[in-house]
Design a protein around this nucleic acid. Structure first.
Length: 602
RNA sequence: GCUGACAUAGCUCAGUUGGCUAGAGCAGUUGAUUUGUAAUCAACAGGCCCGGGGUUCAAAUCCUCGUGUCAGCACCA
């Protein structure tokens, strides 16, 4: 197979450019390697632009890069394009590809290029961002486009692609600018890979927590209640309750104290904390008896008030308070997304008040907590340190110290991390935990944030060794992040087939006939005694149908009870995944359930 | 918030260029059947066609303003 590009000093050059510069390097052939796909998808983006231009002659193009999930092109046309038009564009692309146009390249001086594209404000805006004096133009058939490459030698090599989404996007990614049309697509070197990719997308759709959440009756949303306010149904509430009790134990073992702050606090307090000024546009406010109140968007202020309730000695530190804190944040309507982004949610929130010297060990302990929990759910995860953002409070020196403390904690313990410059909260730098689910998608959940700002603003203190007043450091942390988001992710991760210890219902009991109902009830009571929920399927339906319904609820275990079982004091178990059946004595069965529920500890 | 699409029974969806009493499957209720591992049969009930305003002899259908949902952007746990 012949080369499609050349790799030279980690730079990928198309064949024309390599020849131009007389460079010989490692050959890249057309396969599904990252380098090859990058070139292929970039050229596919151009092919798409070519097709769009021929169908909508007035179209003007902005940029068409490759991204993690394929490629896109931003453009503008007076015609209306709907997602139904993607097929038409694909067809046009194929017909161009069949003509096997060569992709040619030539250079222009910046001035000539500006003259050439003088009627195209999008291209001019692209060129404004380019510092070089010359730019390159790529040409295939009638179509040409300003681009720095690299590209395939010919569009004839493009065969296996699909246009996936049509949407709007801001020019230059800035919400102040005009909105362009963006079409996303994907391309592969072979048919199989494209098919696999489409299968993966279909799988992700099947796992959508909004769909499964409805089917399993975990939660719902209602228009009359308001956007972004989830309603937890019995099954979802049972799942949450299991989470809460597991986490309660995990926190107590690590020396956290449960506390509870009020849902709303006087606006003055939010001014002291800085939330009023920095986060006010996301908060809900109300006026009561001429006093302004703010509904809490975070739990820190409540916990600070707990801290202030008594005097503290250095001997007491670290002090750790935790709360399943309900918070309200006014998110943009367009940001709302099932349980992933809501306006009311519950954080597994905690605040650690400690000395500067204790920061590192505390961070390590929290990271270990995170690790235990993620391992339990078979999540891979990575950590990201986010530094000072544009909109920040507190002085620069404190920021530097805090950032250094986080990095130290990671380095000293050989933990892997990435850095997100400017991604911190307004009051301090943070470590975010990004988890990878069963089908490789990445989610942000837990967070560990260092805060020197609130202790300063609230003048928090403890008595030091020499009886002088010292200021504690505050660490905000959440392991799940929020119950809402985490349960949403967990739902997609397991495709609704939750493991026994967290499932809303542990066992479905199906009595064969009416006369077996009493025995089913007795068994159900015994299950409650060992902290297992069960549901009896005794409706006037056929046995087959009741088993089918039970299966569809995704319950981990179904037991069938009839004459035989009652006589022998056994249960007939049907495994969810394998559909295999086996019989256990009632005693062994109860033991099994108990083990499965208790085997988990974070 | 922005761009675009969508909103019909508890759920999933039909409903022609505006025209008769808005349909189906599942779920629900009732009756028959009492079932041994993924849908027994029958009957019944269920709708301010998202909400307000308008156009029209006539609106689920057209226009408009809201609300909500979806995709993407921008923002975030």
């Amino acid at each position: 197979m012949s080369a499609i590009a050349i790799k030279y000093n980690d730079e990928i050059l198309d064949l024309v450019t390599a020849e131009e510069r007389g460079i010989e390097g490692e050959e890249i052939i057309l396969d599904n390697s990252p380098e090859s796909l990058d070139v292929l998808r970039h050229s596919t983006a151009h092919l798409m632009a070519q097709a769009i231009k021929s169908l909508y002659p007035d179209a003007k193009f902005y940029v068409g890069p490759t991204v993690k999930e394929g490629f896109y092109y931003d453009f503008k046309t007076e015609s209306e394009i709907g997602s139904g038009d993607l097929k038409k564009i694909e067809k046009q692309m194929l017909s161009f590809a069949k003509k096997k146009y060569k992709i040619e390249k030539y250079s222009l001086s910046m001035d000539d290029a500006k003259e050439k594209f003088k009627d195209d404000h999008l291209k001019l805006s692209v060129m404004e961002r380019i510092k070089d004096n010359t730019v390159s133009i790529y040409k295939q058939g009638e179509f040409e486009d300003l681009c720095r490459g690299p590209h395939l030698p010919s569009i004839g090599l493009i065969r296996y692609f699909k246009l996936t989404k049509l949407a709007g996007a801001y020019l230059g990614g800035d919400s102040k600018n005009e909105m362009l049309t963006r079409i996303y697509g994907i391309a592969f070197a072979d048919k199989e890979s494209l098919k696999d990719h489409m299968t993966m997308l279909a799988e992700a759709e099947k796992r959508d927590h909004r769909k499964i959440g409805g089917e399993m009756k975990l939660f719902t949303f209602r228009e009359e209640v308001g956007a972004g306010f989830p309603i937890w149904l019995p099954a979802g509430a049972r799942l949450r309750a299991r989470f809460e009790s597991l986490l309660y134990k995990a926190h107590r073992k690590r020396g956290y104290q449960p506390v509870r702050g009020p849902e709303m606090l006087r606006a003055d307090l939010w001014k002291t904390s800085g939330h009023y000024q920095n986060y006010g546009e996301n908060m809900y406010f109300t006026q009561i008896d001429d006093v302004e109140f703010g509904v809490k968007p975070m739990n820190c202020v409540g916990h600070i008030k707990v801290y202030e309730d008594e005097l503290h000695s250095y001997r007491d530190l670290p002090i750790k308070y935790f709360e399943y804190g309900v918070v309200h944040r006014h998110e943009f309507t367009g940001a709302l997304h099932g349980l992933f982004r809501v306006r009311e949610f519950t954080q597994d929130d905690a605040h650690i008040f400690c000395t500067v010297d204790q920061i590192e060990e505390q961070i390590i302990e929290v990271v270990d907590f995170v690790d235990k929990l993620m391992t339990t759910f078979d999540f891979k995860y990575k950590m990201m340190i986010s530094t000072k953002p544009e909109k920040a409070v507190g002085d620069a020196e404190v920021w530097e110290k805090s950032e250094a403390a986080l990095i130290n904690a990671m380095e000293a313990n050989n933990l892997d991390y990435d850095i997100d410059e400017g991604g911190g909260a307004f009051y301090g730098p943070k470590i975010d935990i990004k988890i990878l689910d069963a089908i490789g998608r990445e989610w942000q959940c837990g967070t560990i944030q260092l805060d020197n700002n609130l202790p300063e603003r609230f003048k928090l203190e403890y008595n030091g060794e020499d009886n002088e007043k010292m200021q504690p450091v505050m660490i905000h942390r959440a392991i799940l992040g929020s119950f809402e988001r985490f349960i949403g992710i967990l739902t997609e991760h397991y495709a609704g087939e939750f493991p026994m210890f967290i499932a809303p219902t542990q066992v479905a009991i199906v009595p064969v006939a009416e006369v077996h109902k009493d025995y089913a009830k007795q068994l159900s009571d015994k299950l409650i005694d060992i902290n297992a929920d069960s549901e009896i399927y005794a409706k006037n339906d056929s046995l087959n149908k009741r088993i089918r319904i039970a299966e569809k609820t995704r319950v981990p275990m179904i037991v069938v009870i009839g004459d035989e079982e009652i006589e022998n004091k056994t249960v007939a178990i049907r495994d969810r995944r394998t559909r295999e059946q086996y019989t256990l004595s009632e005693e062994k069965f109860l033991q099994l359930i108990q083990t499965k529920i208790n085997e988990v500890n974070f």
